[in-house]
Design a protein around this nucleic acid. Structure first.
Lengths: 125, 125
DNA sequence: CAGAATCCAGCTCGATACTG
DNA sequence: CAGTATCGAGCTGGATTCTG
């Protein structure tokens, strides 16, 4: 039984899927994972179009909590905070890549199916 | 640039991640993918603990629309409807399995990180 | 610069009731 | 059996304001 556990808050797979289902978390992870240099808060903010400051800080906090991202505060004035992906985070990004490949490979097939479905639904009424 | 596209509704990877972030969709897919025999609506309902009939029908509809699941209505009285995973759906389940393996492999490490994080946050106050 | 706190609009989802 | 329709509570996340 592959994906089980009912309400599943304590199912590890579900936790990862929740993380991965979170748009901002994936974008942050992808950005930090694409280079090896740390990125500052407002740099991330500018790089990820559409993210609010609240969501960015919230996302970074939970990614740090999970050990996927590391935070480094430098005592300049004003303070500088750098975020970087961890070794653990990199392994997740790698795994996520398999999903990206699936998406790109099968997108056309999915879209074709959707169009068939929608065409039938419309004509059926 | 791995995971891009800002609001990304038309990013294929994001669509897949949304699907995968949907708890019920993954459970339905996992259940249908674990065997080769089709499953009826109320069978699924009973098998997936906690799912409401609204969410099940909604989930099945969108999975069918994407071509991940097939629907077969049999004209008995009352009507019987069977759902099965498609070939496309199977490839997604397989890919999802990589994520499950990641979760199971790294769960301990993630949980350890969370405990360190929470301990610091508490003592810090 | 890097956040925390507050407020609220909007969407999700469960519960409930009804249908072919 | 296999759904659809409707209503409302609750959570999510954006906008705004403020701080060390």
């Amino acid at each position: 039984m592959p994906f089980n556990n009912p309400y599943s808050s304590n199912c590890p797979t579900r936790k990862v899927l929740d993380r991965v289902g979170d748009k901002w978390a994936v974008l942050v992870l992808g950005l930090l994972g694409s280079g090896d240099t740390p990125i500052r808060f407002n740099q991330l903010r500018r790089a990820i179009e559409g993210i609010s400051q609240k969501m960015l800080s919230q996302t970074l906090k939970s990614l740090e909590r999970d050990g996927l991202v590391s935070r480094n505060a430098i005592a300049t004035v004003p303070v500088t905070v750098e975020y970087a992906i961890t070794a653990l985070g990199k392994t997740l990004v790698t795994t996520l890549d398999a999903l990206r490949v699936w998406a790109e490979t099968h997108m056309e097939e999915v879209m074709a199916s959707q169009q068939r479905y929608d065409a039938n639904a419309t004509s059926g009424q």
